[in-house]
């Protein structure tokens, strides 16, 4: 939901190292689960950057990183990627590596994509090495209940 970005963030992991030194990120590893409102992200590692005590950026890696969210229209959204780079100031998530996006209205796969959390819009990019963007739209009549 677009309101997710104003919600508290909860992080659980097998281990975590919290850094105080300026510019040094905190690292969480092992069964990392991040929740923020309806957004749930599962990954194996997270690198958390904070600025003056405020979390500004989270880079998640996993095989894959799985991002699930309920959109403003109530539809579920599931995204898989090798890496998700979530900028909390711009609400933009940059997804790279085997990106797969699925929602009732259709699926998309691409080498990389950008997801705007506040507008819910995706922009996908083909890659110079030949990775193509593939989309499949499901007609409304064929969408399950």
């Amino acid at each position: 939901r677009s309101s997710d970005r104003n919600q508290p963030i909860d992080i659980s992991a097998d281990a975590g190292v919290m850094e105080q030194a300026a510019g040094k990120p905190s690292i969480v590893t092992g069964n990392v689960v991040i929740t923020q409102g309806s957004l749930v992200i599962n990954s194996s590692k997270g690198t958390v950057y904070s600025n003056d005590g405020d979390v500004s950026r989270v880079i998640l890696t996993g095989s894959p990183v799985r991002l699930q969210q309920t959109q403003d229209n109530g539809d579920p959204l599931t995204v898989n990627a090798s890496q998700a780079d979530y900028n909390l100031n711009t609400d933009i998530v940059v997804l790279t590596g085997n990106v797969r996006i699925s929602q009732p209205s259709g699926n998309l796969s691409a080498p990389s994509a950008t997801y705007n959390m506040s507008t819910g819009r995706f922009v996908s990019q083909a890659s110079s090495t030949g990775g193509r963007v593939k989309m499949r739209f499901v007609p409304k009549s064929n969408r399950g209940g």
Binding site: I9, I11, D14, A15, G16, V55
Partner: peptide
């Protein structure tokens, strides 16, 4: 932290 839970 071992078995970490964070709330921000």
């Amino acid at each position: 932290f071992r078995t970490m839970r964070a709330h921000y």
